[in-house]
């Protein structure tokens, strides 16, 4: 997405130079300003679904997701404010309440981006009631497991499979609260004809929804995999 021109903007009061077409998130990152995000991952297309990276832009009453909003000249961005913190905290609370997340028995306990965000934002309890509907756990693959009860629908797995592995074995079925990750056309993973068993989906899963059986999750997870492969390809 790099354009030809160069633009100047201010992020949290810091003067930042960025390429035309670059996103706020990417410009902020280079300036050393961290914006929380869950669905965003370096090396994958931006999705704009988790809403954690929302930022304020001076002159607009709206909030903008930093991962999809392109920079423009003279833009003044605020990445942290009481309002943004309150809203991000709410997003984390809602994600924790959407599925029967039980950190104590989750394979990703201690290696979970959602758990880390809850700690960072001081989400020490949930003000909304939790959902306890159980969803499909696919154990049919010889070593990959998909547990929809832990999925936060960030679609990193879909995107890494589609954009990096080039297979698009994963997708979403249904919509809204009933959305679920599926393999092929809602087949059992073990009988999938398109899955190459490359594990990239497990590597990028921010929570414990896709994991490798009998492998410590700290060894499976690798947030840099997509970006790493992209850089290799460009050589």
């Amino acid at each position: 997405m790099s354009g030809t021109g160069v633009v100047k903007l201010k992020i949290d009061g810091v003067e930042v130079t960025a390429n035309e077409g670059e996103t706020i998130l990417s410009a902020a990152k280079r300036a050393g300003i961290k914006i929380p995000a869950l669905c965003y991952l370096d090396g994958l297309s931006s999705y704009g679904g988790c809403r954690l990276c929302i930022v304020e832009v001076k002159g607009s009453p709206r909030l903008f997701p930093a991962c999809t909003t392109p920079v423009s000249n003279g833009m003044e961005v605020t990445t942290d404010s009481p309002k943004l913190r309150k809203y991000r905290k709410m997003t984390i609370e809602l994600l924790l309440s959407e599925k029967p997340h039980i950190c104590a028995i989750c394979i990703a306990n201690g290696n979970c981006e959602l758990q880390d965000l809850a700690r960072e934002f001081g989400v020490d309890h949930l003000r909304v009631e939790r959902e306890w509907k159980s969803q499909k756990i696919d154990l049919s693959h010889s070593f990959l497991v998909l547990d929809n009860n832990r999925c936060i629908l960030c679609t990193r797995c879909l995107r890494v499979c589609d954009e990096i592995e080039g297979v698009h074995a994963l997708d979403i079925k249904m919509r809204g609260k009933d959305s679920q990750i599926i393999i092929d056309i809602d087949d059992d993973w073990g009988s999938s004809i398109s899955c190459t068993s490359c594990r990239k989906c497990a590597r990028v899963c921010p929570v414990g929804a896709i994991y490798v059986r009998d492998e410590p999750i700290s060894r499976t997870k690798n947030k840099d995999i997509a970006q790493f492969i992209l850089l290799r390809r460009r050589r």
Partner: peptide, 16 residues
Amino acid sequence: GDCAITGNVPAMRNII
């Protein structure tokens, strides 16, 4: 603790 705050392991029976 998580049980008092979220239901945690004792609440797993809610799934049934």
